[in-house]
Design a protein around this nucleic acid. Structure first.
Length: 408
RNA sequence: GGGAAGAUGGCUGAGCGGUCAAAAGCAACAGACUGUAAAUCUGUCGACAUAUGUCUACGUAGGUUCAAAUCCUGCUCUUCCCA
């Protein structure tokens, strides 16, 4: 089914190929022809398992952004219904989420999408939630509609399902249904919006291609699936962690400064790939930055961090984060985006201060002091009995090299 | 419906009456070296407490015992096998 990539004629696929977004496609040649005409509609779906997207989700989202840029219409699907089922991509069944959690998460997901995709103007994007069409669905009807044309034999050969079975791990009937729901989504979106392209992460391939057959049978039309590569760090670690937390897209989950810092601190080996993926810089500019080696590569990382933050949080937040980083790390000052903590009394013990400022336990702070990880201003704190007086002007309290709070 | 196994700290997973806040690995955090990178080495990794102390924790509710993650009973959930 998957073909080797031809020389693309459509702008969209040319750009995607140049930036390394293309992983697998049901029919590259056909899709290229399809996208040669503007005004096509494609969808990307994500289940609301958390109340924000994180950087790991961003690759296909950026594809949707480019898609829109080249005159096509993106549909962003929130899997309010499929979240009730749980994609069997893990080794075990997901814990059931309550309806309230799912709804709250859906709202967060929508806010994440809105940062990257335009929902007004020409070829405005559309946001849909599959809960809309599944919530009142009649089981008997669905079974007859989908069940008759679904081969269990085929379902069992799907990668993730096969893996479970091969490893003798439990697979519930609920989970087995997941691919049917995803296929049905595709059909529904075709009927409503004439959407005949699905874009998704490469791990969704098996779930997605089922929709192609369904559209052919039920709607007598050719449909396409295009997958994005999964971005992995060179050491095989998963992407998307920042200071032990997920690198969230939504502002209320991660400050813009921390978002900037996430990109500022990426592995050298990832810089080029991330510039291509997470920024809209021209390819020539990326080629120039990619040549930087040694300590000079920090320049490329600054550009990456700025551009990536700009897309997600806006140019003001990006500027502010960049300035804060510059001031804090290069000039030894205190940048505006550094969180602040005001000492509640005239003086306070260093342990209480650091515990409150960093939101850690006192024991944790004592350990950190013993390890020499805490410093106030330029002075390393040597023991945990130090008493700190309220400073005349703000002083920087550091936990390790990167966690910093301005003490007032 | 019958039978068997299991539920341990962020995850994997040992422990199977005291020496258990619980091995080991992973993840994470910190230190050294550096470039706000990687690799490497070192340390930390339930909470509280100015060390050896207290509290909370091994699905849940009880019980046996001087003493339980470890034994017994009920409950909840999960898996596997047979029908």
């Amino acid at each position: 089914m998957t073909q080797t990539k031809p020389k693309f004629k459509s702008e969209f696929l040319r750009e995607m190929e140049a930036r390394g977004f293309l992983n697998q496609c049901s029919d590259f040649e056909g899709l290229d022809k399809h996208f040669a005409t503007p005004g096509r509609t494609a969808y990307l779906g994500c289940d609301p398992t958390a109340d924000s997207l994180h950087i790991g989700h961003l690759v296909p989202v950026m594809m949707m952004r480019w898609l829109q840029k080249f005159g096509h219409r993106p549909i962003l699907l929130v899997g309010g219904a499929t979240a009730h089922i749980g994609d069997p991509d893990k080794d075990e069944e997901r814990p059931m989420m309550t309806l309230e959690t799912i709804q709250k998460n859906s709202e967060g997901l929508k806010r994440s999408y809105e940062k990257f995709i335009r929902f007004a103007g020409d070829n405005a994007a559309v946001m849909v939630d599959n809960y809309e069409w599944f919530k009142d669905m009649n089981y008997l009807w669905f079974l007859r509609e989908m069940g008759t044309i679904t081969s269990v034999n085929k379902l069992l050969t799907l990668d993730r399902i096969k893996r479970r079975l091969d490893a003798d791990l439990h697979l519930s009937f609920l989970e087995l249904n997941y691919p049917l729901f995803q296929s049905y989504d595709f059909l529904e979106l075709y009927k409503k919006y004439n959407c005949d392209v699905q874009i998704c992460g490469s791990d969704q391939w098996g779930n997605a291609i089922g929709g192609i057959d369904l559209l052919r049978r039920k709607a007598n039309t050719d449909a396409f699936v295009l997958t994005a590569p999964i971005l992995a760090a060179p050491n095989g670690k998963k992407m998307g962690k920042s200071e032990g937390n997920a690198a969230w897209i939504n502002d209320d989950k991660l400050s813009s400064y921390d978002y900037y810092q996430y990109f500022r601190n990426v592995d050298d080996a990832m810089v080029e790939k991330m510039l291509l993926t997470f920024t809209e810089l021209p390819l020539a500019e990326i080629a120039r930055l990619e040549k930087l080696r040694g300590a000079d590569i920090n320049e490329a990382k600054k550009v990456l961090a700025f551009e990536a933050t700009k897309l997600c949080r806006g140019v003001d937040a990006a500027n502010s984060a960049a300035t804060t980083a510059q001031t804090t790390f290069e000039s030894g000052g205190i940048g505006a985006d550094i969180p602040e903590y005001t000492i509640p009394a005239e003086e306070i013990s260093i342990v209480d201060l650091a515990a409150a400022a960093f939101g850690e336990s006192k024991s944790e702070i004592r350990r950190a002091i013993a390890a020499g990880a805490i410093s106030l201003g330029d002075t390393k704190i040597e023991n945990d009995k130090v008493i700190v007086a309220r400073p005349v002007r703000p002083v920087l309290l550091s936990f390790g090299k990167k966690k910093k709070v301005a003490i007032k």
